[in-house]
Design a protein around this nucleic acid. Structure first.
Length: 585
RNA sequence: GCGCUCGUAGCUCAGCUGGAUAGAGUGUCGGCUUCCGAAGCCGAAGGUCGUGGGUUCGACUCCCGCCGAGCGCACCA
């Protein structure tokens, strides 16, 4: 309807330009908005005010002229000028009502479109280091990423969901060392656990699994393990140097194969836990992409070669640097360390290049603490001759957690965190999924665990689900009473729906496709949750003031198709959010 | 110090990319069920949109300066 009105206005303006009343060279961007107040009609346009200055005319005069040249349209019942120069459109109720027919025809596809025309896009999200279970901080990225993927898919993108697994690098070595030390403890050794090691209970579990599987095969004495190790931080030393030395000793003592065994056991154990957790959260991936695979298939070396060939690399103090400042980054970045190892950044460049080469545009969803990372990745893509605008990075703020009124620090390292799984057990995946996306992503979010768990009934999700269940309940009663329902009868008499509750509800249904499109294009699931809340509210309000099962059969059938359409839209919306639409609660 | 994100009702947050009288939830107060589910509905109170300037027909929205919060500023990932 918006585009239709816009084209009507465009025609009017063009004819005014043709007869010289308006200057020819005017560039017009006709924007149609929804009227906030019913007294202002259904749609409103401010183009007359926008034109006032360039045309050097009074906005109300312009509006008057535009209206006179507006082509007739059967959907428009009335056009008015209001306020400083708004053009307000009143839409025929009959044309609004046809949405019910559309919804019933399209069913679960209603609202979706092919705006993106099958364009390939990869959404990469969560991608937490496999050094521990997911905590509630990761949950927000998971819910947000999954929903954004669904939204993009709904407007016609070919969406590829990917989890980038950081299975290479120092953090994983620290994990492997932590597991091995716990294992040695279980073999009877007395260990002073490094302050920089992973202290969570899951490390103990992995260690005891290894003990069960392999017995004493990886055993070593404490004296050997701590031979030639610089002091840890509590003893006045450097915790980073301490743990790095421990890792080195572990590698030497265990040998390559055994070390790899411990390493891989830890990795696989945690990764499969993460997979299961996300699956239970309704978050599914098309691919789990291994960072190590980039090294194996030379993707990293080819990316680096590309950078070198482009002339944007230089050597300094034994390391290779990428001159990212050329592309607006605040400083240059190391790609190959002086010890010959490539950095995480090198992997990431290769990963992004590889993904673009696979034909995907990229949507990365990162925690906001990585925001400083964006310019250097874009810089690298540009340096390699790729179009940096093909990469969109969406930043998700961390939720600030409160428990017992106190702020909680989440740290995988210290082992102090609330896991995503615990949250799901407490409030359920549906409530958690909804709760996470009800605020926009860049908004700092206060997450009161006590509120979320003890008063779960206050979760706004239940309000929406309840509307759906209520409609199902009406339909159940209909069946019990053996009253026949005919969609065709309803559609024939849809014009009997003239109560204000009914027209508002129909108006809301009309807005759904546009709302969905906008939420997807702007990567903003919260727009959809707010819409669903409003839709549910309009329904509850309607429900409280009118009965659906009534003696007037024609009106009853009309009301039934209306509430069934409403049920369908709620269902479609919740489905995109990864949330169930229950028949009863 | 520099950069990014933010500051809207007691609390948690929207505000359709510059439009008409700034809106919801929650909390507080007052009403509504012989009738399809009261996890609901209706109403009231509650605001200097952090602050001071600027841009224009018009600013919560855009620009600049302050104040405050979170996060970044590694040869970690």
């Amino acid at each position: 309807m918006k585009t239709r009105l816009a084209s009507l206005l465009q025609q009017a303006i063009s004819s005014l330009q043709a007869n010289g009343w308006l200057p020819e060279e005017l560039s017009v961007d006709v924007q149609i908005g929804h009227a906030r107040d019913a007294a202002h009609g259904d749609f409103t346009c401010n183009v007359a005010m926008m034109l006032a200055k360039p045309a050097k005319k009074n906005p109300r005069q312009i509006a008057e002229a535009i209206i006179q040249h507006l082509p007739d349209d059967k959907n428009v019942s009335k056009v008015e000028i209001a306020g400083p120069g708004f053009i307000n459109f009143f839409i025929n109720p009959e044309s609004q009502n046809t949405i019910i027919n559309t919804i019933l025809e399209q069913g679960s596809a209603f609202g979706t479109s092919n705006i993106a025309n099958g364009k390939k896009v990869q959404v990469e999200f969560v991608s937490a280091n496999p050094t521990g279970p997911l905590h509630v901080g990761h949950g927000r990225g998971a819910a947000y990423g999954a929903t954004v993927s669904n939204l993009l898919s709904a407007i016609g993108y070919d969406v590829h969901r990917e989890y980038y697994v950081n299975d290479a690098g120092r953090q994983m070595d620290i994990l492997a060392a932590s597991v091995w030390l716990r294992y040695l403890e279980q073999c009877g050794e007395t260990i002073t656990f490094p302050s920089n090691g992973y202290k969570g209970d899951y490390v103990l579990d992995i260690a005891s699994d290894i003990k069960k599987q392999n017995g004493d095969a990886f055993k070593a004495t404490t004296a050997d393990v701590f031979n030639n190790i610089p002091a840890d931080e509590p003893a006045g030393g450097d915790k980073e140097k301490h743990i790095d030395a421990l890792i080195n000793n572990a590698k030497t003592i265990l040998g390559e194969d055994n070390y790899k065994h411990v390493f891989d056991t830890a990795l696989n154990s945690i990764l499969s836990d993460i997979r299961e957790d996300l699956k239970g959260f309704g978050v599914n991936y098309d691919n789990w992409f291994s960072e190590r695979s980039l090294m194996d298939n030379k993707a990293i070396s080819t990316a680096i070669k590309k950078l070198k060939d482009s002339g944007h690399m230089y050597q300094k103090e034994g390391a290779w640097w990428f001159k990212s400042t050329t592309f607006g980054d605040e400083k240059d970045r190391v790609v190959i360390r002086d010890n010959g190892q490539t950095t995480y950044f090198a992997s990431d460049i290769a990963y992004h290049l590889h993904t673009l080469d696979r034909g995907y545009d990229i949507v990365d969803i990162w925690g906001s603490d990585h925001h400083g990372y964006v310019p250097r990745v874009k810089a690298a893509l540009q340096a390699m001759g790729a179009d940096p605008s093909r990469l969109t990075v969406l930043l998700v703020q961390f939720a600030v957690l409160y428990k017992n009124g106190e702020k909680m620090q989440m740290s995988t390292r210290s082992g102090q965190f609330v896991t995503l799984r615990e949250l799901r057990d407490e409030i359920g995946s549906d409530a958690a999924r909804y709760f996470y996306v009800v605020r926009k992503a860049e908004q700092h979010m206060d997450f009161d665990l006590d509120l979320a768990t003890s008063q779960s009934n206050e979760n706004p999700l239940f309000y929406v689900q309840y509307a759906h269940a209520r409609i199902c309940s009406v339909l159940r009663l209909l069946k019990e009473k053996n009253i026949s329902y005919s969609p065709n009868d309803g559609l024939v008499h849809v014009d009997k729906l003239a109560e204000s509750h009914e027209t508002s509800l129909i108006d809301a249904l009309n807005r759904y496709p546009e709302k969905l499109t906008q939420a997807a294009q702007q990567y903003e699931p919260h727009q959809l949750t707010h819409y669903l809340r409003e839709l549910a509210h309009l329904f509850h309000s309607y429900y409280n003031s009118h009965k659906f099962i009534i003696d007037d059969k024609e009106l009853m059938q009309a009301r039934l198709v209306l509430i069934i359409s409403t049920k369908q839209v709620i269902h479609n919306g919740l489905n995109l959010l990864g949330v169930n639409a229950p028949e009863s609660m």
